[in-house]
């Protein structure tokens, strides 16, 4: 049963990778990247159960936090061209 879930996750993952390669805009790629991150968390949990090692969930939690920060950082970079940009510098 876990094997079926793993196959489903791999199918969705490959579709997301195709979307990340095809684009066409940068936001499509960021969205696909974030979806790949979410699917990777699910895959970590599923494979952890499949092989009887649920300790992989800890890796999944870390990956979830990194996924959020990474996506927001990429979006900020593409919006302002600068990761150190501060909104309050612009508001009088």
């Amino acid at each position: 049963m876990f094997a079926a879930a793993t196959i489903a996750l791999l199918v969705a993952l490959s579709l997301a990778v195709v979307r990340a390669l095809k684009g066409p805009t940068v936001f499509d790629r960021v969205l696909a990247g974030n979806t790949i991150g979410t699917l990777a968390i699910l895959l970590l949990a599923t494979v952890g159960f499949l092989t009887g090692r649920p300790e992989w969930l800890d890796v999944g939690i870390t990956y979830g936090l990194l996924n959020l920060i990474g996506t927001l950082a990429i979006l900020k970079f593409f919006r302002h061209g600068d990761l150190a940009y501060d909104v309050e510098e612009d508001t009088p």
Partner: peptide, 19 residues
């Protein structure tokens, strides 16, 4: 098992929608 299969179905559907 039913829940895991249903979840897998929605995951594949989401991936399909992404395409």
């Amino acid at each position: 098992f039913v829940l895991i299969l249903a979840g897998s179905f929605f995951i594949v559907a989401g991936g399909l929608g992404l395409m």
